[in-house]
């Protein structure tokens, strides 16, 4: 008898707790349904239709896979842009990760004026926005200092096969901007570095390990989680960046007479699919590396 009532009270307590839990996240659930789930399904629906917007509402005309096949097989620009996006992302992610890691390692050392350097390296978090980047790129201020304009470099680029030329060119013209996407990643690395127990370094040093060995055997493996997080963050940030050419193209097609909402929606989903593939690729590659590192 007593046990049963205890049991029941346990259940009501748990229900009560769950109810409060749902209460706290209720606003978010409503918001998710209204601003994420419903629009996502609607966009998916648009992508299978010919959409025309009239004053009274929108007309849908079912067109099966027409929008998708048009994006993949007829449109000369879209596939080109997707390839460009893939190349740029795969070039940028390792640069951002390595740069962020190096800067974080620097900032983790104690030295005078560290505060000043921290301010410098986190500055781009504040100022990186679409229009600013666009203006800077237009003025050539984003290239690795002076390199992209040297005639010899231009000639060298011309001799490269096209498949190699675009990543190299991208690297030269946007090098600093790629680095500018590293701010948050430096923060994340720094926090991971600060969590490594100091005594491990001391123990390793006593055992005669050099700084080089300490980095590869202790520091790098303990940064593996942060690396995965940073890689995902970098891919997502680059893919959502408003000056991203694919995004600009989809946006322009939305209002284009020959494009339209249906076509833009189909491209949005294709782009999203590619982005997920890239994310998965980067994720599994790094996970494999991380599990090897801990062994």
């Amino acid at each position: 008898m007593n046990g049963r009532s205890n049991n029941r009270r346990e259940i009501t307590l748990r229900t009560r707790e769950a109810l409060y839990g749902y209460g706290f996240i209720l606003l978010w659930i409503v918001g998710f349904a209204l601003f994420m789930a419903v629009p996502l399904v609607q966009t998916l629906n648009y992508s299978f239709n010919q959409v025309t917007v009239t004053a009274s509402g929108i007309n849908l005309e079912f067109s099966e896979w027409a929008n998708y096949s048009r994006a993949l097989f007829t449109d000369p620009n879209f596939i080109e842009l997707l390839i460009g996006y893939t190349v740029e992302t795969l070039v940028s992610v390792p640069i951002v990760l390595i740069f962020a890691m190096i800067i974080a390692l620097f900032l983790n050392v104690k030295f005078r004026l560290k505060g000043l350097f921290r301010i410098i390296f986190f500055l781009p978090i504040v100022i990186t926005s679409g229009p600013v980047i666009k203006e800077l790129t237009a003025q050539g201020a984003a290239s690795a200092p002076g390199i992209a304009n040297i005639p010899a470099v231009v000639e060298f680029l011309a001799t490269l096969p096209p498949a190699l030329r675009s990543p190299v060119q991208y690297l030269l013209t946007s090098f600093i901007l790629i680095l500018w996407f590293s701010g948050v990643q430096i923060l994340i690395y720094l926090s991971s570095l600060q969590k490594i127990d100091r005594s491990i370094y001391e123990a390793a040093a006593i055992d005669g390990a050099s700084s080089w060995e300490i980095f590869w055997k202790i520091v790098l493996p303990s940064l593996s989680t942060a690396t995965v997080v940073n890689a995902v963050y970098t891919v997502v940030t680059l893919s959502h960046f408003s000056e991203n050419k694919v995004i600009r193209y989809i946006y322009d097609q939305t209002y284009d007479v020959h494009g339209g909402i249906g076509y833009a929606s189909a491209m949005a989903f294709l782009y999203f699919g590619l982005m997920v593939i890239l994310l998965a690729l980067v994720y599994f590659f790094l996970m494999k590396w991380a599990s090897r590192g801990t062994r």
Binding site: P39, T43, I250, T254, A268, Y271, M275
Partner: peptide, 11 residues
């Protein structure tokens, strides 16, 4: 993860 252009038009 979901890019804004996948939800922005209905919104």
């Amino acid at each position: 993860i979901i890019p804004p252009q996948n939800t922005v038009i209905p919104q």
